[in-house]
């Protein structure tokens, strides 16, 4: 039950010409060894920026302004670049959203996999090649030797994402951050990829943060779920609890908008309004302008409260699903 990652009061802000964008504004969570955490939110909620902050990949004008990121007990927020470089791809790996864009189009698969090993270990090229081949076999890629010689454009999207997953597992990391790795794929491929990832985390004991906008994806995959809205985590808890008994009106809305068999014939729920303008955040609860349960009291920021072992940021926790 050791904690691989502890994120506390993380704030990552972007200092643009138009003003300060508080992309991540006070995020706390913990990921334990071998555990999968689902980080759920709409686009622009800051979930990807959270992932990049952990890896220290925030580029100017962005910057981690406050908070701590402890990885295996050591503080890595704003750590020196060489130190972060040693962690990246080695102890913490990342899988990106669009496999079309992340693999370098002019380099062969073997080059891109082997360099990931050789960046962290001083071993013969041949050994690195063998490890890459075995990793491709593990994610269910047929005839891996052949695929290693291919260029990215010669592989299908699903195949490329498998390559990315295999690459992530190459150095047996303690933590993998998967940033919407299935969004760009067909539904059937999606299921396979999720299955592969799940299998590998079980086998290796690697912890994982699975970033997605789709609650349904993490429902069967994650142990814990953190729901993010406008740079903050608004609800956090065990997956079954959050899915079965959502407390935050936003989670309720998200769940209501997922089509499922038992809601057939009913109108899908739609969260009204738009994600708030990151430059002009509401002073209180950021979700209040779109919230059905909002009252005048919501113009103060809700504190984090603990309910049934779950963390919540809401003045009006929902008790029953209101999505129906």
């Amino acid at each position: 039950m050791s904690d691989v990652l502890q994120v506390n009061a993380l704030r990552t802000h972007f200092f643009t010409h138009a003003g300060v964008v508080k992309a991540v504004d006070g995020v706390d969570f913990t990921v334990r060894k071998g555990e999968v955490m689902g980080l759920v939110g709409e686009s622009g909620s800051g979930k990807s920026i959270t992932g990049f902050s952990i890896l220290g990949l925030i580029d100017p004008p962005g910057r981690i302004v406050d908070g701590s990121i402890r990885f295996n007990g050591a503080e890595i927020a704003n750590a020196p670049e060489p130190e972060l470089q040693k962690l990246r791809g080695n102890r913490i790996a990342m899988i990106f959203q669009d496999p079309m864009m992340t693999l370098n189009p002019v380099l062969r698969i073997d080059t891109q996999m082997i360099e990931a090993i050789l960046a962290h270990e001083d071993i013969p090229r041949q050994t690195a090649w063998e490890r890459s081949r075995d990793a491709l076999g593990l994610v269910g890629i047929p005839s891996p030797e052949e695929r290693l010689r291919a260029y990215p454009h010669q592989l299908s999207g699903g195949m490329r994402q498998r390559v990315a997953i295999a690459t992530a597992f190459l150095n047996r990391p303690d933590l993998i951050i998967a940033d919407e790795p299935t969004t760009a794929l067909d539904v059937t491929i999606q299921a396979q990829i999720i299955h592969e990832a799940q299998k590998l985390t079980r086998q290796t004991g690697t912890a994982m943060i699975w970033i997605t906008h789709d609650l349904a994806v993490v429902a069967g995959l994650a142990d814990h779920i953190s729901v993010m809205y406008a740079g903050r985590i608004v609800e956090q808890g065990a997956t079954d609890d959050v899915i079965d008994r959502p407390l935050h009106p936003y989670t309720v809305g998200l769940l209501g908008s997922v089509p499922s068999a038992n809601k057939r014939g009913q109108r899908l729920y739609q969260i009204e309004g738009m994600t708030p303008n990151m430059l002009a955040m509401p002073t209180g609860c950021a979700f209040a302008p779109r919230c059905r349960a909002a009252t005048p009291g919501c113009d103060t920021a809700p504190p984090i409260t603990d309910i049934d072992g779950r963390h919540l940021r809401c003045h009006h926790p929902q008790t029953v699903g209101v999505a129906s």
Binding site: L55, L57, G89, N104, A116
Partner: peptide
């Protein structure tokens, strides 16, 4: 481009 960010996420040196 994403592939540069990905390369950085793999822990490659700036030189490479």
């Amino acid at each position: 481009q994403d592939y540069v960010k990905y390369a950085r996420a793999k822990g490659l040196s700036t030189r490479r």
